[in-house]
Design a binder for these strands. Structure first.
Lengths: 339, 339
DNA sequence: GACCGTTGCGGAAACGTTACCTCAACCAAT
DNA sequence: ATTGGTTGAGGTAACGTTTCCGCAACGGTC
């Protein structure tokens, strides 16, 4: 029954017998309007199922209630999506929309994409980076509020929300030490990745507080089960009395666990194993399931966008990096209790 | 050095000594303007690094050069992201942008989100569904071009781009039969999923063309390695002479392969194993790696958006479902040649 | 009772752009 | 030389809002 074209505020005003200005005040909750008139206008608006043309609104106000989301590298599918979902939920609460683009790993494109978004009057930019290395700061060239998530930038005063890899890894070690594990080894990703580095630091720092150290050399490997299996085999050969293996990801941990079990050792009785990421298809599918760190990426995305909105609302938001600890998820690979 | 506010076309016109209208013609490549004037205007535009205000443009033209992307259920992370990437690349080529929202599995929200997008003047809608079941058609209520991807809708005349699960599964079987496999079993996902159903149909149809049939009962299981391991164990016990196992996903196949190898059988010599999805973290990490079907989701997304643009451009696009076959990727789990 | 502040409402401008129309100048054909 | 079509250019309306300002009515205060 509604006409082909959606109703305009002018039509609402005419039907309600008021001026365009008054109708605008009514629907926007402005003052200088009587309660009776407001109700009358709102009733007509509802009848026509009027909805403001956000484009026009944006033009006159200079604010679009759209934020731009820039994905540096969609290769990190698995991590970008939860962040996006978390961000999206906040965006929606605020009755904003999110336009999304990805730079396909070409960092220079971030600046170009930001420029396009600016022509669309976006009110802010969320840049989803990469915890393996730094993303270029586009804050200066963008001239609108920018928040970075899941990865550092080249500019230290940028507002960055990152996972706390140091603390996460330390938590894992704390858990293992609490269980009485003494000979702990580490199998992880490539050593040039900053997340890997931070986690190693977290592990070694925490261990040395207990006057302990990692057993054997740290196995820096590609993020691959194939390599993890080899690493585990080598490790068990070199250090047959190992009693815990901290892995840099659930993907690695799944392969390590499989290999350890294949040697006849019991998990967790003989060797406890931990992962990182709480990636369900790995963490919940091994036998026993993996103790791991959930980085709470949805929450990370949501928090980052909240900061972005604060900046959009004109509040002063201090620069620097916010670290999100994430949560330890204890499962059978370290804890023998039935889960 | 540019001023705080981006330059407007009016400013370009004034500096170039022409009227606003003429400047508009120049930058938009309209006719009724001399080549000399156009060049002069363009030069000034470049100097000021003028870029049209897309919001204003959208308001007057009624077209925003934005498309809306609706995710029915972000749970299917793994599949939605490549589709999004593929879609995005076409969107970008056309100098469009994409606004994204997800319905978090609540299908009714699709309609609401579509309404919000319409207030933003989006020129079309891409609905990313789910190959497990039907998504509600929002074509009628949206009143703008709609294309659905990765999952059927409730309305048969909708433009839908889907993976061809029937053909994909048939291709796999064809490959196995060509390798001389005679006793083929099937381990797959839950039987209420339409993709599962189609694949089973593809398998059985193709087999019966060769006067063959599946060996043993089809194992319908959750999408889980845990269940796949059990299924494989049962299968090998019931049919110890099986020589091929077709799996409904790489995730299942990885667990099945692991279990088969654990019984001392050689893959592919004794038992060939196939997956589905070409999900790298599974398909390329087993030993040997998995022969599988790559659904080419990026291409699927791109093709769907191309159709959407055709509709936006006013071309008539016939309703119905387009099936994308995907590609067979042969690896060591079926083919003994070194890869 | 004159004055002033408040309240309710509407007129008009502004946002930056495109589309439509008009107008003058020019060239070619009658 | 008049006509008629084409070309380059500009004036103006329109898109749907919000915001600024003005105006009338009203109530209270000295």
């Amino acid at each position: 029954m509604p006409a082909g074209r959606p109703p305009t505020l002018t039509e609402v005003a005419r039907l309600a017998g008021v001026s365009l200005t008054t109708a605008s005040k009514a629907v926007n909750g402005r003052d200088r309007i009587s309660e009776a008139t407001r109700r009358r206008v709102l009733r007509v608006a509802r009848e026509l199922s009027y909805a403001p043309n956000l484009v026009a609104k944006s033009l006159v106000s200079g604010r679009s209630s759209i934020i731009g989301v820039l994905l540096r590298d969609p290769m990190v599918h698995r991590f970008a999506m939860p962040i996006l979902i978390g961000a999206q939920s906040v965006v929606e609460q605020r009755e904003f929309s999110a336009v999304v683009a990805d730079a396909r790993g070409v960092v220079d494109r971030l600046t170009d994409l930001a420029a396009v978004f600016r022509r669309r009057n976006v009110d802010g930019l969320l840049v989803v980076g990469d915890n393996q290395g730094k993303s270029p700061s586009i804050t200066a060239s963008a001239r609108i509020p920018c928040v970075y998530v899941y990865g550092p930038t080249t500019h230290s005063r940028d507002v960055v929300h990152s996972t706390d890899d140091f603390a996460g890894a330390a938590t894992v070690v704390h858990h293992l030490v609490g269980l009485g594990r003494l000979r702990i080894a580490h199998v992880t990703g490539p050593d040039h990745a900053s997340a890997v580095e931070q986690r190693v630091l977290g592990i070694t720092t925490h261990l040395s507080e207990h006057c302990m150290r990692l057993d054997g050399d740290i196995a820096y490997r590609p993020w691959s089960q194939r390599w993890a299996r080899l690493a585990a085999r080598d490790l068990l050969a070199a250090r047959p009395d190992i009693d815990a293996i901290v892995c840099g990801s659930d993907q690695l941990a799944a392969a390590v666990l499989e290999t350890v079990v294949a040697t006849g050792r019991k998990v967790p009785d003989d060797v406890a194993i931990t992962g990182y990421d709480n990636w369900a298809v790995f963490a919940q599918e091994t036998d026993p399931a993996l103790t791991t760190i959930d980085m709470e990426l949805e929450h990370l995305g949501a928090t980052a966008v909240n900061d972005l909105f604060a900046m959009i609302d004109g509040q002063r938001v201090g620069g620097g990096t916010r670290h999100h600890e994430g949560a330890l998820v204890v499962r059978g690979s370290t804890d023998p209790r039935p889960s």
